[in-house]
């Protein structure tokens, strides 16, 4: 069992949890993920590692309530235990020589939590990090202090303009590129359409762009093949070949269709869970 050491709601749909998992903490690196299972009937879901502390043996995950499992995970409290927590899985990010080079780390929505450790790693390698992050509105902003500390230049965009910067992360990237900023390397992490949009923008400029894929998977060790995707015309498995890939080579159309494979089942599970919660609430009253 894996104890939840800390739980913090970052906004009304995003939660941070620090979990006691010494074996994972010992080996974890940027870009890697874990798979967890809440209880006996639970699904195995992959979540990217947001932070780790080798000394205390804890691993931090940040998740958004999007499906049944993340809804149920959000109901767990400090001191509760998770049945399974395995990792680190996937390959560690490789950035090459970025010392003194200017790089952009772009995060959308929950992707910001995943992009953050990348920014830390790049900064530690001596890169000059611009962070471009986007939220629906400024009230949903997370980790701003952390992001600001690690980046040379933090650009925050909001869909509704509530912080005075209305637009998508790609609008900000466009402005930077138009202003003549030369990026050696771009990391884009977030919803598939956002990663595709960033990749399309950097492609004509030949800027190496890395995206982090988070497809449906079960074992996460290269056994089930559920996480397969097409990269440069070849079949790849996100769990063992990724989760990071060259954004210019990923078939995003296919990845988006695959991500929706279980949409009807996911809706059913969510509704059932909501009903059950309502029933439970009635009992309490």
């Amino acid at each position: 069992m894996y104890k939840i050491l800390e739980k913090r709601r970052l906004n009304d749909s995003v939660t941070l949890m620090r979990v006691d998992a010494p074996l994972v903490a010992k080996k974890a690196g940027p870009g890697q993920f874990i798979i967890l299972r809440i209880d006996e009937n639970g699904e195995r879901i992959p979540l990217t590692i947001a932070a780790y502390d080798r000394e205390s043996g804890s691993v931090t995950i940040i998740f958004q309530k999007v499906g049944l499992t993340t809804m149920r995970l959000d109901e767990k409290e400090e001191g509760d235990e998770l049945l399974d927590f395995v990792g680190p899985l996937g390959r560690v990010s490789h950035f090459g020589d970025v010392k003194g080079k200017r790089v952009a780390v772009i995060g959308g929505g929950l992707g910001i939590a995943i992009a953050y450790p990348q920014a830390v790693a790049l900064a530690n390698l001596g890169a000059e990090v611009d962070m471009i992050v986007g939220f629906r509105n400024i009230g949903l902003a997370i980790l701003l202090d952390e992001l600001s500390a690690v980046s040379k230049n933090l650009i925050v965009m909001t869909d509704d303009g509530s912080n005075g910067h209305r637009g998508f992360v790609t609008d900000a990237l466009r402005q930077q590129l138009d202003a003549g900023v030369q990026y050696e390397h771009v990391v884009a992490i977030g919803p598939l359409p956002m990663m595709r949009a960033v990749s399309e923008m950097t492609r004509p400029l030949g800027i190496h762009t890395v995206v982090s894929m988070n497809p449906i998977m079960i074992d996460g060790t290269g056994m089930c093949g559920g996480c397969r995707l097409t990269v440069g015309g070849e079949m790849k498995f996100a769990c063992v070949d990724g989760p990071e890939f060259d954004g210019h080579l990923v078939d995003f159309d296919e990845a988006m269709k695959r991500a929706r494979m279980y949409a009807p089942e996911e809706n059913l599970s969510r509704e059932r869970h909501a009903c059950r919660m309502e029933e439970a609430a009635k009992h309490v009253q």
Partner: peptide
């Protein structure tokens, strides 16, 4: 694996479809 290991045959009792 979905069927045997994750008990998808009992979905939605089991969470894996």
């Amino acid at each position: 694996t979905r069927i045997n290991f994750m008990k998808a045959y009992t979905f939605p009792e089991s969470d894996t479809p």
